[in-house]
């Protein structure tokens, strides 16, 4: 995200929008920021124009609130939901019971096998060292992402391998490329189109950092 204020002291449009949306109301921790914005707005008429636009859009949104479905439609919907839940539940219970049984059986086998191994093997220094070893569940090359929600829109996927958290899907304008470094593995410069208009996975291995 951009910084809250530009070099000339003007607030970022995102910050102004948050103020117009009432995000600072009742927030004592943001009172200084709110005062600074109010001072800026008093001196800058273009801010008032933005505010007027926000209010127009809000009014338009309010004026076009969707019609509520009728009572009969709601009742019909509830019946359909109840019917779906009745259909869904019994197989789910059977599945979970079966899964729990299978898991318990696997656990028993595992415990028995571990016990036999433990009894048959004397502890060694190597064993003690291997206790701290972390076994990866999967490496980055073993993971294939088939589908990302929103991939039909011009997007940039920002994340880091190995996967440490959720990959984030950013829209055009959410990301600003300030510099692009060549790939550490082959020294090739990644191809980036003029804007973030085409999908690109930007992921660097931890070892390259």
């Amino acid at each position: 995200m951009k910084s809250l204020f530009g070099p000339g002291g003007d607030p970022s449009p995102e910050l102004l929008a948050a103020y117009f949306d009432g995000e600072f109301e009742g927030r004592d921790d943001l009172s200084l920021l709110r005062q600074r914005l109010e001072h800026w707005l008093a001196l800058h008429p273009q801010g008032q124009e933005d505010l007027a636009h926000y209010q127009r859009l809000r009014q338009m949104w309010h004026d076009t609130t969707p019609h509520e479905p009728s009572r009969e439609q709601w009742d019909a919907l509830l019946r359909q939901i109840s019917a779906s839940l009745t259909q869904v539940r019994p197989p789910a219970r059977v599945f979970w019971k079966a899964a729990a049984g299978l898991a318990a059986a696997c656990l028993l086998v595992l415990v028995a096998w571990s016990a036999v191994r433990f009894v048959n093997r004397a502890p060694s220094g190597q064993d003690l060292a291997s206790e701290d070893e972390v076994f990866p569940v999967a490496t980055e090359s073993e993971i294939v992402i088939f589908r990302v929600a929103g991939d039909d829109a011009p997007t940039v996927i920002v994340g880091e391998l190995p996967l440490k958290g959720p990959l984030e899907l950013m829209g055009p304008g959410d990301v600003t490329f300030t510099s692009i470094q060549p790939d550490a593995r082959d020294n090739m410069m990644p191809h980036v189109s003029a804007g973030p208009g085409s999908p690109m996975v930007w992921a660097r291995l931890e070892s390259e950092r």
Binding site: E14, L15, A17, H53, Y54, L57, P166, M170, D174
Partner: peptide, 23 residues
Amino acid sequence: LGISIGTVMSRLYYARQKLRALL
């Protein structure tokens, strides 16, 4: 949405800009 507040601010701003232009 499981995103940061900064991303929310940014998405809302761009959404409004686009809506304004389109309308």
